[in-house]
Design a protein around this nucleic acid. Structure first.
Lengths: 408, 408
DNA sequence: GAATATTGTTCGCACTCTGTACAAAGTCGG
DNA sequence: CCGACTTTGTACAGAGTGCGAACAATATTC
């Protein structure tokens, strides 16, 4: 039951019905490929005549192609249809503190080329560098196919509409323009998004073959910080200024440890990798000197080391991880009470110890959830895909092809 | 950019365009009434021909009517159109611990009849009582017009889809069926909703004349408990089990005071009227005996008394209110970071002291908000309308007439 | 009274889905 | 091999849409 916005709506034209149904057909083919026209018609509950016309238009637009002839026990054999994704290319960029990753991939997220380089912290330098690298990358990888855009994932708050980076403390950026300069430097459309939300988009748009994603879910990625993405009704929650979904800075205790964001007691300050390691070494996060902080963040000792120590019998390591698990579950309880998703996807190094932390996490979640069913919200380990941030950046460009048309 | 659900979608038929445009026309007329066909055509950016046909259909369906002839400086005078809401009736029911309110009103929320009675805590008794009262109420108030349904607001968690009350601690109900028995008892369609969300629906659907509501906002009502409703893209956030939006039980401090919900340190435990009064008297909420608790909840001393003492110079009262204001602002900060609404509507007795609390509230909000602009999210005092819960209950029945049709 | 302006209706046209008929291409059983 | 049967894919008339232009109705201005 959505209210129509009387200030900004779209009336239906005589081609609106066809637009809607063509898009539905594309999605059904994408989901069930390879599929015949007749099967498509049955799944869409339209006549084969209409399905035939829709398919012809999608063929004309070069969005799908006819593959081999299929098998059937009886009657005429069907011609099978596939979505054309292997020759539609995207450049995905993942900017982190340590490194910057560039990937060329197709619309389904399949990798074509990959490149790593040091992160440039000066914006003009970054833009110049990315421009030359992207041009060279496309030249070397046989750019016979058209590249349709550049997607960029950044650890920080991004206004996805204007393409400005509002605040990226990890990179030291505050209110800088990135999209437009990069678009002119590369001559391609550019989209920018927060890295946690980019991962969420990858889950929403680029997962096929595996079990279907629900229309309502939350993604939680634990790394140096905590990235969260919220999907409601099949759509990423963006909010009025495109900065919604920041569960990382919901407090567990307003009198708790200082957080990087300036406030105190944020969930992130309890469960980030940095917090877990600090807990092990007995550091006080808020009292760390900048030097020690940098060392803790990018030192040689990682959460993975901590986990292996815990597995080796180190009780202090085990306690640090259990504590993180407990706080992780408490925060998930808040997400369940506020968003009530069908499931929550968890990502990050800490999830490799899922066998160790599952107990405390689900116990803490059930403790704070308001309903018993909410307490049993399924937690799924986001099958550690390679380069999920890069795939999310690619989804920024690929998604509009498949998205539902705006109506009413 | 919404993803199409390939398991559950709606293909467009040849009447879909007309359905969409007819509904848009109804909403534009509702928003700008009285309005002529030509003006409607201009606002919808369609030809006058199409607008004329849409209007004719709405007239045939008895959803609008032709009013007086308007004035124009030049040319033929327009016939003005109005939405027919005064002869479409609803029964609204608001069940509280203290009293139960019944109202007959029209589709715009205009009151026709009102009745108050003691709340029945036994479900079979409640249903029998409501059934007879509704029948009698409709008989005495000239039921020449058809009554289209019964909307019920309940303080507690409600599965709006099945009409079951999951948990209403204030009334002592847990997992009870209410909708279907009441529907058979009254012979009318019944919809049930949590009272906080009902108020949100009233804001979304039944406010005209005043300034337009945004498509993204949050409602926060502070009473014995705290009721919250979240509106995203013009739609109430319901979640996968219809229990989303429970910001009342997001923690401020997981080691804080015990909350009625069983968890500790919930926002509600810091800012409910009960918490404010307890703070004044120096009670510890979690240590109150059931007897004292009942007295505190329904005793003669209310937050309004506390406010008048504060205005009279009582420093302890002033401190208690300031403290509540501070915690209120901290929680609003969480809402801003998670939902990023265009504005937040505040309701409840405490808002009558807005001149006293505005400072601490906005300061605390800005303290926790991640962006400067988020910290300046407008807070609006929900212009204390009479019976906002009842109007929300009415909206449960009235809204489907105006809602956008489901497509794709 | 003629010119002008605005409202509201009508009609041919292009575009859409719907239902039916039909051609194409295959299996099965004799 | 041939006819009965099944399934796929296409073709076409029909009904429901929006689009654009023309036209009638109504009122003001000069």
């Amino acid at each position: 039951m959505r209210k129509i916005n009387t200030r900004d709506f779209r009336v239906a034209t005589r081609s609106t019905s066809r637009d809607i149904n063509r898009r539905i057909a594309l999605n059904v083919i994408h989901e069930h490929q390879p599929i015949s026209r007749a099967e498509l018609a049955r799944r869409m509950r339209v006549t084969r005549g209409v399905a035939g016309v829709l398919v012809q238009e999608l063929l004309d637009q070069d969005l799908i192609y006819e593959g081999a002839t299929g098998e059937a026990a009886f009657g005429r054999k069907p011609t099978l249809l596939h979505v054309k994704s292997h020759d539609r290319l995207v450049v995905a960029v993942d900017i982190r503190f340590s490194k910057t990753y560039l990937m060329v991939c197709d619309f389904s997220g399949r990798q074509v080329a990959l490149e790593t380089c040091d992160t440039k912290f000066s914006i003009p330098e970054l833009i110049r560098d990315l421009g030359t690298r992207i041009r060279r990358l496309l030249k070397t990888t046989g750019t016979t196919q058209a590249v349709e855009g550049v997607g960029v994932a950044v650890p920080g708050m991004v206004d996805q509409r204007t393409g400005r980076i509002l605040n990226a403390p990890a990179l030291g950026w505050r209110d800088v323009e990135l999209r437009n300069p990069l678009a002119t430097a590369t001559g391609l459309p550019v989209e920018i998004e927060n890295s946690g939300r980019a991962c969420t988009l990858a889950l929403l748009w680029l997962e096929r073959g595996e079990s279907m994603r629900p229309q309502n879910f939350v993604y939680v990625g634990v790394a140096d910080g905590v990235g969260v993405g919220v999907v409601v009704n099949g759509e990423l929650l963006r909010g009025s200024d495109y900065i919604a979904g920041e569960f990382a800075h919901v407090p567990l205790n307003i009198e708790g440890p200082q957080c990087m964001c300036g406030a105190s007691g944020c969930w992130e300050a309890y469960i980030s990798n940095l917090a877990t390691i600090s807990r092990y070494f007995g550091w006080h996060l808020s009292k760390l000197s900048p030097n020690k902080l940098r060392h803790a963040k990018h030192g040689s000792f990682t959460v993975l080391d901590l986990i292996s120590r815990a597995r080796g019998g180190d009780q202090k390591a085990r306690a640090a991880i259990d504590s993180t698990a407990h706080f992780l579950g408490l925060g998930l309880g808040t997400i369940v009470n506020v968003i009530n998703p069908e499931c929550i996807y968890l990502d990050g190094e800490i999830t490799t110890a899922w066998d160790l932390i599952q107990g405390p996490v689900t116990a803490a979640l059930a403790q704070r959830a308001l309903t018993e069913k909410g307490g049993r919200t399924p937690l799924r380990i986001s099958s550690t895909m390679d380069h999920s941030r890069l795939r999310g950046a690619a989804a920024l460009i690929a998604a509009p092809t498949f998205a539902a048309p705006r109506v009413a």
